[in-house]
Design a protein around this nucleic acid. Sequence first.
DNA 1: CGTTGCGA
DNA 2: TCGCAACGG
Length: 333
Amino acid sequence: MGVAFRDILGDYKEPVSWESLAGTAALDAHNAIYQFLSIIRQPDGTPLMDQEGRVTSHLSGILFRSASFIEKGIRTVWVFDGTPPDLKQETIRERRTVREQASEKWQEALARGDKEAAYKHARSSSRIDDEVLRTSRELLDLLGLPCIQAPSEGEAQAAYLVQRGDCRYVVSQDYDTLLFGAPFLARNLTVSGKRKIRGRSISVLPERIMLPAVLKGLSITREDLIKVAILVGTDFNSGIRGVGAKTALRIVQNGGFEQAIMEKSPDTDWETIADFFLHPPVNENYLLEWKNPDREGILTMLCDRFDFSPDRIQRALDGMNVKTGQKTLDSWF
DNA sequence: CGTTGCGA
DNA sequence: TCGCAACGG
């Protein structure tokens, strides 16, 4: 979701400093891991793999990004998806089809030696399987970072953590958490966010989106924002053809939502979808505990089992601890 | 994506 | 020291 939806959010994206993001953050694990699997690849699309051919792109991404977050004083909670709602079945089927077709196109591109196309299709063929999930959690556990299992959508759980005050903000590239009520969404939390300005390369600041500012600025309620999303399409419905975010916003602001649905998409059970965004299943009984990284455990897992270079891993581990002066991360807060 | 190595 | 290409697994 969100490709069209973001057209009305442009004015509410604020650049923020890394310092202002110190504290606890609920990380959309699916979103982050997908990004790692999708992007960390060779030019021909081959992901990082150990000697046995097991994919390791996600482990590389999790380790180095976590090291960077820890150095910046950002304590992450990794929120994993549970069982998707029935409402999402069609989207899931569509994604599987796209993935399978991308996989075929990847092989075809490889066969004809078109690396650029190979890389592009390989990215779209990315899939988070059980093995990726298991090894991700294993590494996060060794890093001492808490993982929460959502009963349903991870974005909903992440939004809940912030609403409840256990985290300051959600980290995700997707905007869905806003619909689930996250008051503070942070995007572009990448180390390598670099841009050239006047010949100089400066690091691009992360950006934040504050839900109250969005709602106030657009003069709508959260329920209205959800209606806008439903008109353009969500994970739970395909939206109305030809209606983008700006048109959808105007329709909702003018009170024309129900009529538009009735006329253009009468089969959309919008009330059920809206109710899911407003009252999603969440786990309310979680325990958040941060521990020191298990240095030996991480080295054993990544180097002995997955063929990472001990040198690189040690350097990353040094970066996580040295700055804290042997204190536990917890003692910062 | 994030790190590292290399040429200027 | 910087900027970019290549590597990592």
